[in-house]
Design a protein around this nucleic acid. Structure first.
Length: 726
DNA sequence: CTCAGCTAGATTTTT
DNA sequence: TCTAGCTGAG
């Protein structure tokens, strides 16, 4: 039993064994937070004999939930399966699917995403005759969302802001938006939380049931909770008060999405008897890296206060490179990476972090040219891709024929020659008869154009399919019968899109395979709530490019933070507002603490932004790191023997002279084998396939491969890790 | 209804 | 500079 505690330091042990009563664990970056959470759960079950079904563990991401469940299971075995380890949203869906009828909703509600929200807002604006210029849908969406985060109903929102004319207008939009959601039985993400809170308030017996069920509650990333989520947790914990929240106020970087840092700062006000434990020993980074982070973050006010330390030595200094321009900056990073690769690092040990996605451009240009293996953790997620959203819209319409949002989305995709005029007529009739668009066609078969009737027949056929086919076959059937595949095939550039649909189908197949009791509804819930199929395959040896935000929770032996300039970071959008600068500073703290061994920070004297080149100055955050732990290289010093070319920054590579290694790409890494057309090969992820074509590209080979399961894909030999199929 | 051509706007995004 | 999204001509 004690071996559960063996590998934990004193503070971690205390966090694990303080099982009863409210507990706030302030867990600094890299301080073993996940270890504490999982061991605490194991301790509760094994040592305190708490039943697994009496435990609720809440995370923000599916990935974190999955990881936590797996790690607990490896500690205590299958008993772990009876716990609730869920994201806020999926826990709420589960609660609502059981009891939402108690507050007048239908239990078979649909979950809509940001894209649908936007269409819905646009519809509302149109109906209210508001101009999109004056009320940008995006801004309205975030206003509605933040109202819901604060648990404000349209009426309460109206009452709170009755003096503000504009907000009064927005209240009308919000009101209509909410009405439309109710009519079509849709919930948006914020509703999932807000309505659960409402359910608990209006149906006290439901609340009591869950209060008694969840005798022990754990919340991860507590600094990211919004007001509604906090309220939800506090309500649930009220009875037994065994609430353990884990977080780091210094890592709160999602204010723009509603995260309320005061939840964690005021936890001790909400629970005056709360025990507070700080985890400050860091197991990830060198002391120099931690000192950099500590010195930056100490400039923020209103912190809980923490100072990270390690017993693993000071390590190298922080390397700073002041580049001439953005391409020079990218080349410096690429050349350093190649050098480190020769020194024995893998490319996958290295990450480049930037403030905004747009910054990946110059990096990608240079990396591509130098044939440096890299991957971008893109801004666009799998389920946000148009083709995927279209397929999902068909699925949703099949599941719920009254889903007008989905209807509108795909009525003319692929083109069925049904345009605005037809649609306006149809929707006028639908409004008059107070029914959905598809239902309206059904009720007037023959009266509308052939195109509409054909569409109705198509959906009717698919609904029949849904009853007899497994989900993956249903998706395939939709793909074929809607002629979506044919539609993509006409477009040469749609190769990737077809691959994406292929992934959707194989994802559905694996859901059917792995789920104990596959159901259409559960599959659709997963689609709505699972942000991304885990396409971050760590096996591939490639450097990773991503935003600072998406780096949270990850770690790399080598980290490059680029664009360390005033106006980029802190961003020009926030640099004049002290509160927002503090959030940027937290982002800086998060970024620095991703690094284990080596940290490189780069800035540039001038950059091209929005097509214009202008001068830049190093970020204020650079000044906050003590000079004694910096190792600065300046492209404008030390290179006096060279004249600095004024115009062509992209051809300027001072580092080749500075660091004594060439800017040539590293020698080609052999992929082991070269294949020829007709060869049968095995790919780790895609399975067996036949080489259709092989053409040399630089020092690599480009293959077109027909896979048995996922269709034809284009792959590069260096990354594909193909093996011969004997 | 469709598509070419133009204009305005351009952080970060766990669900 | 890039691109999403709108507008108007065919």
């Amino acid at each position: 039993m004690n071996n559960l505690l063996e590998k934990l330091n004193d503070m971690q042990q205390k966090a694990v064994t303080t099982t009863d009563g409210p507990l706030l664990v302030l867990a600094g970056a890299g301080s073993g937070k996940t270890r504490v959470l999982t061991h605490r759960i194991a301790y509760l079950i094994e040592k305190n004999n708490v039943a697994p079904w009496n435990i609720l563990a809440i995370t923000f991401t599916n990935k974190a939930a999955k990881e936590m469940a797996e790690r607990v299971e490896s500690l205590i075995g299958e008993a772990a399966q009876d716990m609730w380890v869920r994201t806020f949203h999926s826990a709420c869906v589960k609660i609502l699917r059981r009891d939402i009828d108690r507050i007048g909703y239908n239990r078979s509600f649909n979950i809509i995403d940001a894209d649908d929200q936007k269409s819905l807002v646009k519809e509302c604006l149109k109906e209210l005759r508001f101009e999109e210029k004056e009320f940008p849908p995006k801004a309205i969406m975030s206003e509605i969302s933040s109202a819901k985060d604060k648990l404000l109903t349209p009426a309460e929102y109206k009452a709170e802001f009755y003096t503000d004319f504009r907000k009064g207008q927005i209240a009308r939009i919000y009101e209509l938006y909410q009405k439309k959601l109710e009519v079509s039985n849709d919930l948006d993400f914020d509703d999932l939380i807000m309505l659960t809170v409402r359910l608990f308030k209006e149906a006290p017996d439901v609340l009591t049931y869950y209060q008694n069920k969840f005798r022990y509650i754990l919340v991860d990333e507590y600094q990211d909770t919004n007001k509604a989520q906090n309220e939800l947790i506090i309500m649930l914990a009220k009875e037994h008060r065994n609430l353990c929240v884990v977080g780091d106020d210094d890592q709160s970087i999602y204010k723009f999405r509603g995260a309320d840092i005061t939840n964690i700062l005021d936890f001790e006000k909400a629970f005056s008897d709360a025990c507070v434990i700080r985890l400050e020993q860091n197991y990830r980074s060198t002391q120099n890296i931690l000192d950099a982070a500590n010195n930056v973050i100490k400039n923020n006010s209103g912190r809980k206060g923490k100072r990270l330390w390690t017993d693993q030595g000071s390590g190298q200094k922080i390397n700073v490179y002041k580049a001439e321009g953005d391409y020079d900056e990218a080349e410096f990073i690429a050349d350093k990476m190649n050098q480190l690769s020769r020194d024995g690092y893998k490319y996958s040990d290295m990450a480049v972090l930037y403030r905004a996605n747009a910054s990946s451009r110059s990096l990608e240009d240079v990396f591509m040219r130098k044939a440096l293996p890299y991957r971008v953790l893109s801004g666009l997620r799998f389920y946000d891709r148009k083709e995927i959203r279209d397929m999902i819209a068909y699925l949703r319409l099949v599941k719920n024929p009254h889903d007008d949002l989905s209807f509108r989305r795909i009525i003319n995709t692929p083109s069925r020659k049904i345009g605005k005029v037809t649609l306006d007529n149809l929707s006028a009739v639908a409004t008059r008869e107070n029914t959905s668009l598809l239902e309206t066609i059904k009720n007037h078969l023959g009266e509308f154009s052939d195109n509409l009737c054909q569409f109705y027949n198509l959906i009717a056929e698919l609904i029949e399919d849904a009853e007899k086919l497994s989900i993956d076959n249903l998706v395939e059937s939709i793909y074929e019968k809607t002629r979506y595949r044919a539609f993509l095939e006409t477009d040469e550039k749609a190769q990737e899109r077809m691959e994406n649909v292929g992934e959707l189908i194989s994802g559905a197949a694996s859901y059917v395979e792995t789920s104990e009791n596959p159901s259409f509804e559960e599959y659709m819930d997963n689609l709505a709530l699972v942000s991304d199929i885990d396409n971050y395959d760590e096996e591939i040896d490639a450097a990773v490019l991503m935003t600072m935000h998406s780096s949270k929770g990850l770690e790399f032996p080598v980290v490059f933070i680029c664009g360390f300039d005033e106006g980029l970071f802190p961003s020009s959008m926030s640099m004049f507002n002290p509160e927002e600068v503090e959030e940027e500073r937290r982002l800086c703290y998060v970024s620095i603490t991703r690094a284990r061994q080596l940290l490189y920070i780069t800035c540039a004297y001038r950059r091209m932004v929005y097509g214009k080149t202008s001068p830049y100055n190093p970020s204020r955050f650079l000044d906050e790191i003590p000079a004694s732990i910096l190792d600065v290289t300046d492209s404008r010093k030390n290179v006096t023997e060279y004249t600095i070319p004024q115009a062509k920054a992209s051809t300027y590579t001072p580092e080749s002279s500075l660091f004594g290694f060439s800017s040539q790409p590293s020698p080609p890494k052999t992929s082991g084998e070269v294949f020829k057309t007709g060869d049968s090969v095995i790919h780790k992820k895609f399975g067996r396939g036949i080489i259709i074509s092989a053409s040399p590209v630089g020092n690599d080979v480009h293959y077109e491969i027909a896979f048995e399961s996922v269709g034809t894909k284009n792959l590069l030999g260096l990354y594909a890790k193909l093996t011969k199929d004997e």
